[in-house]
Amino acid sequence: MSNSAEKKVIAKVINLEHVYPVAKGSEGIHALKHVNLEFYEQEITAIIGQNGSGKTTLSKHFNGLLRPTSGQVIINGRDVAKRRVSEMAKEVGYVFQNPNYQLFCATVREEIRFGLKNLKLKESEIKEKTVEILDEFGLRSIAGKQPVSLGMGTKKVVALASVCAMDPEILFLDEPTTGQDQRGKTRLGNLALQMKEAGRTIMIISHDMEFVARYADRVVVMTKGEVIMDGTPEEVFSNEEVMERAMIKPPQTYAIANHIRDKDDSFPCVRLDADLTAKLLTEKGLLK
């Protein structure tokens, strides 16, 4: 990791193992096997892998919803397993994949206010912060609506806004882009970038490789409870063996680069977007 030397470590996962118990006498499901990772301030890390690879199990150790079978998760120098879940909620914000698990208030506005009230802010501060968040997330026009009446994409924005309102140091986003259109994805990505600039540590669990390629500084690849790669998006998406093991299709830009590199290894392994890909293809004379 090029920039890890200067950056402060916020969270550390040490030899983390998690076994879900099943019926008596059988062995249990080994969801995490000796995972070691460090997460830094001002960093967006994407965690990718198929369903059942251990991504969500890993994330639930950060707020104490799950306790390790063995190993530790250390946040700001303190062992999460020794702390209360309610205490962790202020440090680690968690936005669930399914917003229905998270939203329960009568209005969108109440949903935002809920977390702020728990932070024991003054009413005037709560009001001010609520208006600010409603504007920032483009929710002002629906502030009085019932969350259950909204579409899936909008519900997800509400869930994210209610967590961001509490301004947690670590933010976990579980599949944030499902049901989002381009505007929604761009808004989400920009919010993640803003939070990163403000010094936050952001973890994104996602199947959306275009989104990961665009916004993540770092990509952790998991299969069967293990981390099989940890690197920059360009390192990860150009490693065809890892992509195949994790059964992941890289974004089209990287798929093009990988295809060319099979025959011409001088094609550079760099961070790609559509514009740079078009430029490189032009320089190689592959289009005309």
Binding site: I256, A274, A278, T282, L287
Partner: peptide, 18 residues
């Protein structure tokens, strides 16, 4: 689709689409 966008950028910006 990204490939469509790449072609369009190659065409309009770099003049390299056939």
């Amino acid at each position: 689709p990204t490939v469509t966008e790449i072609a369009s950028i190659a065409d309009k910006k770099y003049g390299s689409w056939d």
